[in-house]
Design a protein around this nucleic acid. Structure first.
Length: 290
DNA sequence: TGAATTTGACCCTTG
DNA sequence: GCAAGGGTCAAATTC
């Protein structure tokens, strides 16, 4: 129960979760879930992570609200398994996850992470993701009625993509400070959960373009995600947006910052704070190093 | 007019 | 003990 795979049950679901990694932010992509170029895979979840820690705030793991998607079983199911194979040229490369991205990264007995850090590092790589694949997808299947249905689903997904540009993770946050971080031109914003007595805070660092480069969650929500009328039930859950359109691909690292829940040494913290250049330049899988 | 955000100052931690 | 930097507070401002 330590990896996304363990949590989700299968790799396709992992694809979904990758795409669902909204965090209320657009343009965030988990590095090891980059659909077309698989960077080092080091995203794992501490056993200590309860959904309320990691996935409450980011609207995740709501499989009941899965939108049909080529990245999900639902899409394939709707178009039938056979169709899925038939049009398998429209594919999403499977993830390459090092075997190390398992429980070894999170030793047993690490409980109650107090602090979740989700670093989202942007890079100026060409935008890749299925929205850009649509034309090819459509062109290849226009004559097929079944695929027209699929295209309808696809259009719906694209709508979700647009909707997910809203910076909302389902919780209500109140900004209480902003600071210019030393050594970085990116301002850091401090948010508190506006729910009464909720200790949860998050720190968001954005670059000059307004793109979020780093998110740090502190504490756990002691309440359920507030119901919000401005968030449609579907759009609030779905995270196709991570493939979204115009932005550079984002790399993120999600860790438990609980010292005891780290990787057993300080390297992880250092790794979490590693510079983009380090991330980009080094080819050795992070998980392997850790 | 109330809620949310901004922003400078202050406090705390760390080296 | 001191300085630097990060985090938080709270008044002012904006929405």
């Amino acid at each position: 129960m330590n990896t996304f795979t363990d949590l989700l049950g299968n790799e396709e679901d992992m694809n979904l979760e990758k795409s669902s990694f909204d965090w209320g932010l657009s343009d965030i992509e988990i590095p090891n879930y980059k659909p077309f170029h698989s960077p080092p895979s080091f995203l794992s979840i501490s056993p200590s992570f309860s959904p309320s820690v990691l996935f409450d705030s980011p609207v995740l793991f709501s499989s009941s609200n899965v939108v049909p998607s080529p990245t999900t079983r639902t899409f394939a199911d709707q178009a039938s398994e056979e169709e899925g194979r038939k049009y398998s040229h429209f594919s999403f490369p499977s993830e390459t996850r090092p075997s190390t991205s398992s429980s070894s990264m999170f030793p047993e007995g690490r409980n109650s992470s107090e602090k979740l850090k989700a670093r989202v590092k942007s890079e100026s790589a060409p935008t890749q993701g299925f929205p850009q694949e649509v034309p090819r997808f459509q062109a290849n299947n226009q004559s097929n009625p079944n695929m027209q249905i699929s295209q309808m689903h696809y259009a719906q997904q694209l709508q979700y993509v647009r909707e997910q540009k809203k910076p909302d993770d389902g919780y209500n946050w109140r900004k209480y400070g902003q600071k210019q971080v030393k050594g970085s031109e990116n301002p850091r914003s401090y948010y508190k959960c506006s729910f009464p007595n909720c200790p949860t805070k998050k720190i968001i660092q954005q670059n000059l373009d307004g793109h979020i480069t780093e998110i740090v969650y502190k504490g756990n929500h002691n309440h359920l995600k507030p119901l919000s009328t401005r968030r449609s039930s579907s759009s609030s859950i779905q995270g196709i947006s991570n493939y979204s359109h115009d932005n550079a691909q984002m790399k993120s690292l999600i860790i438990s910052e609980n010292s005891s829940a780290s990787f057993g040494n300080d390297d992880f913290e250092q790794g979490s704070a590693m510079s983009n250049s380090r991330y980009e330049n080094e080819t050795e899988p992070e998980a392997k190093r850790w």
